[in-house]
Design a protein around this nucleic acid. Sequence first.
DNA 1: AGACGAACAA
Length: 701
Amino acid sequence: MSLLKTTATLIPKPSSTSTFDSLQCGTLLQSLTNSKSLTQALQLHAHVTTGGTLRRNTYLATKLAACYAVCGHMPYAQHIFDQIVLKNSFLWNSMIRGYACNNSPSRALFLYLKMLHFGQKPDNFTYPFVLKACGDLLLREMGRKVHALVVVGGLEEDVYVGNSILSMYFKFGDVEAARVVFDRMLVRDLTSWNTMMSGFVKNGEARGAFEVFGDMRRDGFVGDRTTLLALLSACGDVMDLKVGKEIHGYVVRNGESGRVCNGFLMNSIIDMYCNCESVSCARKLFEGLRVKDVVSWNSLISGYEKCGDAFQALELFGRMVVVGAVPDEVTVISVLAACNQISALRLGATVQSYVVKRGYVVNVVVGTALIGMYANCGSLVCACRVFDEMPEKNLPTCTVMVTGFGIHGRGREAISIFYEMLGKGVTPDEGIFTAVLSACSHSGLVDEGKEIFYKMTRDYSVEPRPTHYSCLVDLLGRAGYLDEAYAVIENMKLKPNEDVWTALLSACRLHRNVKLAVISAQKLFELNPDGVSGYVCLSNIYAAERRWEDVENVRALVAKRRLRKPPSYSFVELNKMVHQFFVGDTSHEQSDDIYAKLKDLNEQLKKAGYKPDTSLVLYDVEEEIKEKMLWDHSERLALAFALINTGPGTTIRITKNLRVCGDCHTVIKMISKLTNREIIMRDICRFHHFRDGLCSCGGYW
DNA sequence: AGACGAACAA
C-alpha cells in the first residue's frame, strides 16, 4: 500500500499491523490537511471506508471532512458532513471555512445560519470566515450584525477576528469604520497593520497607506512581504518612483535572506514600474529575472498596453508564445486591449480563435474585452455576436456594448441594451450613464438623453459627474439647443471642467454661434491655456465667418504660446500587420506610390468639383502650401496605402488618434464614391461609415 | 482549525 510507505514517517509510532488505529489516522489526516494533499486524502478515505470504519467513527469522519474542506474539495466534504449526526463546532467551522475560501461565500453563510439554527455557538474560529464571506458578498447589513454578535460574544479582542473585521469593512469600501475598529483594537499584530495598509491602497488612499506604514514602524513592527506588496502598489498609485526604487533596492539587498525574496515581489515591482510609467525599468528587471512566470509576462505586457505602447505589448506577446510560455486569460485580456488601441481587427480575431483553440472558458472579463476590441476595431457585427453568446453578462459588459453601439451612431440599440439591463435588476453606475448619454448625443436622441440624465439622479441616486454634464451639453449642443446647453453649464452643481466647455465650443462650431463660442473658448483657455485643440476649434469658427483678422489673432496666440498640435497619426491594418502613418510621413517603403496615388486622387476630385477648405489650416503660410498640408494628413496617407494594397470592393478601416478634419471628411466621402469602397473610419470621438459619397454621421461630428 | 499577499474588462 503506497500510502503507508509515503506517509509512514509522519506517524510517531506506526502500528505493527497493516491498518491504522483511529488516533493515528487522525494524526495523519491532520498533516494531510496542513499540506493540502488531496490525493493522499482520497487514498486514506478509501482505506477507512472499507469495513464501515468511517461511519462508526465520528472523530475520523470529522477530520476527513475538514481535510477535504481545506483542500477545496467541497462536494466530498459536504457528503461526509451530511452523514455525521453529532456535529461539533470544529466540523461546522471547517465547512464554513471551506466554502468561504473556495468561492462559495453564500454557501458559507448558509451553513453559518444553519449552525445557529442547530444551537451550535459560533466561536473565534467561526467568525473570521463568516466575516470574509460577508465581505466578499458585500453584505453590509449582515456584516455589521455579525460584528455586533462578535462584540456581544466578547470575541473582539481576538486578533484574528479583529483583523477579519478590518478586512471586511475595507471590502465594503468603509475606510472610516475600519479605522475606528483598528483604533479600538487592544491587540494588533503585523497582519493588522498589513490589512490596514492594503485596505487603504485598495480604496484608493495610497497616502493613507504610507501614513499607516509610518505608524507601524513607530510601533516597533518590521514589515514583511505583504507590507512591501502594499507599499509597492501604493507607489504605483501615486506614481512615486523614488520610493518604489528604494523598495526595489531593499528587496535586492535582503533577497538572499529569503525573508522578502520571492517571485510575487518581483512581479509587483514590475507592475509598480509600469504604473509609474517607467516601462524601461520594468523591462530591465523583467529581462534579468531567472524565472519568468505567467504573471511576470502579464505584468509587462499590460504595462506596455497601459502606457500606450501597443506595438511593444504585441511584440512581447509574440515572444512569449515563441519561447513556449503559456498565456492565460489575463494575457489575452491585455493583448486584446492592445489590439483595440491600434485597431488591429484581424490580429484581435486571431487572439479570439487562440482562446477557443486553447479551450479557455470565455469568462465574463475575456468576453467584455472581446466586445470592446471588436466594437473599437470597427466590427460591430462581431461585437454583437460575442455579446449575444455570453452566458454571463455584468455591468462592464453592458457598458462596452452600449459604448460600442454609441460610437457607431446606433443610439437606439444602445438605449435598448441599457433598458434591458435595468430590467434584469442590475444597478447602474456612473460609467454606464456616461456610455448611454454619449450614445444619445452621437445619434441626436435629445429627448431620450435628457430623460436618462434626469432619471440618473431621481431614480438611481447617481450624482452626475462633469463627464455626464459634458455629454448632456454635447447632446443639446449638437442638436442646436445652444442656449439650453449653456444654461445647463451655468446651473451645474459642480465646477465645469474642460470637457464641458469643449463640448459647448464644438457645438458652437457646428451651429456657427460666434458669441457663445468666444465665451466657451475663454473659459476653456482659463482652465487649460495649453490645450491646442480649443484654439483650432475657435480659429475654424472664425474662418467659417470669414473673420480673417480674428483667425490671425488666434494663430498669433498659438504661436506666442509655442503650442503645437499633438502629432497626429492613423492606423490601417493589412495582412494582420498594423501600419502607422504620421502627418507628412515619408518613412513607409511604399511612400512614393502613396503620394502618387494621392496626387492622382486630388486631380480626380477637383474634376468632380472638390474645393479644398484651407481655412482649416492653423498655420500662417501661403495658400498653395496650405493645400499641400491638407494632403499630408495621416488619414489620407493611410487611405491611399489601403487603396493601393487591397482589391476592389474591400472594406477599408482607418483609425485616427485625433478628430478627423472637415476637409478630410469631405475628401473621404468623395473617395468612397469615386472608388466604390466602404470606408470605416474611427476617430477620437466616433466611427464614420463612408459609403457611396455619404457618411453615417450626417455631418454632425 | 483561522486573518493579509502580484497581472486583467467600461
